[in-house]
């Protein structure tokens, strides 16, 4: 199952990216290869030989929207640019500021140099040696989605390693503490108290097995929102469950039920969501506590029932 979902995620992602880039080739939203007439205002020479200028690009709102085929910006476009008029080429460099149109801001992040949008100038008009107008063809922007997909693949691979390495410290801390608690008999006490529930949820696991204690600790830590402690306890539980696994590399029923509880994510205080709500200026950030408990409670119950139902299906049976 995971095989199919994984390959589908990849295939859908790459096909969509190719599709969007091909569609962009036809609709040409960035107007590659086409020039737009602009006015150059307040040009101030930056060099004594008057080949580079600090200036303001000015374009009427209607002209901008007609050229790009987008809804008009409310005001005329005015944005600072640098004009370079040399023998080897007449160029324009646009560094976006507050008032720059969104489209150009976006294009500046996709072009050759990040944070700058370059363009080639043709038919430059000058008044007493000072440039006052030109036609500009911005640098071509292509394969936006494919480049984004490539970047994402590399970034997320890195993130995965960072997350895993970041676990080392807290893993060691909690596994150490759990080992002491086990040796002291604390975990056995816990499993005895919750035996009526755990034997029903995990009939294949002996009621006094260390896995049961680890699972109880993981679920309680999750409910209290102690995710730092919950993950090491959960992984400890998986290791203990794996000791009961007759077939290495294949999940057992107990593991799937345990993960269904975990993915249901029953939590008494959804701290992250509350923090984001508070930051967004909510008058009552905690209002979602009750609704989240209902949602997550439903998710957990449905997950456990689904796991119990699916484990009987032939397609998920363990082959010998």
């Amino acid at each position: 199952m995971l095989n199919y979902v994984w390959i589908s995620l990849l295939a859908i992602g790459i096909l969509t990216a190719v599709g969007k880039d091909v569609a962009d080739e036809f609709s040409n939203p960035y107007r590659n290869g086409r020039a737009v007439e602009i006015a150059i205002e307040d040009a101030r020479p930056l060099s004594a030989d008057r080949t580079s200028w600090e200036a303001t690009l000015s374009l009427k709102a209607e002209a901008f929207s007609a050229f790009y085929g987008v809804s008009a910006p409310t005001e005329a476009v005015r944005t600072p640019v640098r004009i370079i008029l040399r023998e080897e080429g007449k160029r324009l460099v646009l560094t976006p500021v507050e008032g720059t149109p969104e489209l150009w801001k976006k294009m500046s992040t996709l072009g050759m140099t990040k944070g700058q949008l370059g363009g080639t100038l043709t038919s430059v008009r000058a008044d007493a040696g000072v440039p006052v107008g030109a036609a500009v063809e911005f640098e071509a922007i292509r394969f936006v989605k494919l480049r984004a997909v490539t970047q994402a693949a590399l970034d997320f691979a890195n993130t995965a390693v960072e997350i895993s390495l970041g676990l080392i410290g807290i893993m060691a801390l909690w596994l150490g503490l759990i080992k002491v608690a086990e040796a002291a008999g604390f975990v056995t006490l816990l499993t005895k108290a919750l035996r009526p529930i755990t034997t029903r949820l995990f009939p294949d696991v002996p009621h006094d097995h260390p896995a049961v204690g680890a699972m109880i600790m993981n679920i309680s830590a999750n409910m209290l929102g102690l995710s730092n402690a919950a993950t090491p306890m959960g992984l400890k539980a998986m290791e203990e469950l794996n000791k009961l696994n007759p077939k290495a590399g294949t999940a057992t029923n107990a593991m799937c039920t345990f993960l269904a509880i975990n993915t249901g994510g029953l939590i008494l205080i959804p701290a992250t969501a509350i923090a984001v709500r508070a930051a967004a200026g909510s008058a009552n950030p905690g209002i979602i506590i009750g609704t989240s408990i209902v949602g997550a409670g439903l998710a957990t119950i449905a997950g456990v029932l689904a796991a119990k139902f699916f484990q009987r299906l032939r397609m998920f049976r363990v082959e010998d």
């Binding site: 269904a260 998710a299 997950g303």
Partner: peptide
């Protein structure tokens, strides 16, 4: 992973 993913997705749907 056998039925862990479908069970997790059922949980998500109901959530």
């Amino acid at each position: 992973t056998r039925h862990a993913l479908p069970a997790g997705l059922v949980a998500d749907f109901f959530g």
